[in-house]
């Protein structure tokens, strides 16, 4: 087993005496996208929260998460560099599309370089000219693409996708999914997609 990529080792999540899952092992190589399927309440979103570091302290946890060989356990969420894309996009309503993207650019980048990265991201997402737009005025597909580009601008070492396409209609879902998968693969980062939609197939599908 290589240490590169995202590795879950013998993970158990329980809450209130109820075990959600136990003994979960998963290895996602760089550039690989793994789809995790499961019923409602099976612990899919809790697993996402566990990996990104936002799990509520009420959970009882065993096991470990490593990313490129580094144990994520002691790190707070902002130092893990794991991007998250949610079902509802979660764009910051008080910021324009451009500001949402600029927020994600790492510190230490000059203003002009920051602007360049934002513009490049908009072009890549086919949203050129949308920088000043209010997120509330975007369509579902546009919001999803902004959310993905925002997560990627933070230069994550892994991506977690928590049912990000489920609110889109079938045609749009396929387009956004293809865009997301190809963009993630181009950056050669490991990604875990949590979904209950059987159409969201990727490199590997596992069921919780």
């Amino acid at each position: 087993m290589t240490s590169a990529g995202l590795i879950l080792n013998d993970v158990r999540l329980a809450i209130g005496g109820r075990t959600l899952f136990d003994g979960l092992c998963l290895c996602i190589a760089p550039g690989e996208i793994v789809t995790l399927m499961g019923e409602s309440g099976s612990g899919k979103s809790s697993l996402i929260a566990y990996i990104c570091g936002s799990l509520d302290t009420e959970f009882d946890v065993r096991g470990s998460v490593t990313l490129d060989g580094q144990d994520m356990g002691p790190l707070p969420i902002e130092r893990r560099r794991i991007g998250v894309m949610f079902q509802d996009d979660v764009l910051f309503a008080h910021m324009s599309v451009g500001e949402n993207l600029a927020f994600a650019v790492p510190p230490g980048v000059t203003r002009s370089e920051r602007q360049t990265r934002v513009n490049d991201a908009l072009v890549e997402a086919d949203l050129d000219g949308f920088a000043a737009r209010n997120p509330a005025t975007l369509s579902g597909g546009q919001k999803a693409r902004v959310a993905l580009m925002r997560a990627l601008l933070a230069e994550p070492r892994a991506m977690l996708l928590d049912e990000p396409f489920s609110r889109l209609d079938a045609t749009l879902r396929e387009r956004v999914r293809n865009f997301a998968f190809s963009t993630i693969k181009r950056r050669n980062i490991p990604a875990l997609l949590v979904t209950h939609d059987r159409q969201d197939k990727s490199d590997h599908v596992i069921t919780l």
């Binding site: 936002s54 707070p76 998250v84 949610f86 979660v90 910051f92 309503a93 927020f103 997560a151």
Partner: peptide, 24 residues
């Protein structure tokens, strides 16, 4: 999830508070 999204982008808890939560 708004705070989680901000922090997953590398924003510290204080920055998330000042830039995201307080304006919202």
């Amino acid at each position: 999830r708004i705070a989680i999204a901000a922090r997953s982008l590398g924003a510290s808890r204080l920055r998330t508070l000042v830039r995201i939560k307080i304006p919202l």
